[in-house]
């Protein structure tokens, strides 16, 4: 049986273990986040949402996913 490698990433401040070789698009899909309503930062860089299909995540990546909430 093939061994599944895991990596550790940080999503919105929380360390999470995920399967290696996953793309950012797959992660967003797994988290059930409506892409249309959020913005994503990967290692402090804002990501063009059209490009996330090709972005493979690496160990220690830091991801921020934000949206609009009530505010004055």
């Amino acid at each position: 049986m093939k061994k599944i490698n895991k990596i550790k990433i940080k999503i919105n401040g929380k360390i999470t273990t995920i399967v290696d070789k996953i793309t950012l698009a797959e992660l967003i899909k797994d988290l059930k986040i409506p892409l249309r309503k959020v913005a994503i930062e990967l290692n402090r860089e804002i990501i063009d949402k059209k490009r996330i299909r090709n972005m493979k995540l690496k160990n220690n990546d830091v991801i921020e996913i934000v949206h609009f909430i009530g505010g004055g």
Binding site: K32, A39, I65, G71
Partner: peptide, 19 residues
């Protein structure tokens, strides 16, 4: 209307969205 930018709550996916 003014709105704020904040982290999405990853653990609670049923959280109501402003939009």
């Amino acid at each position: 209307v003014t709105v704020a930018v904040r982290r999405v709550n990853i653990s609670n996916k049923n959280q109501p969205l402003l939009m």
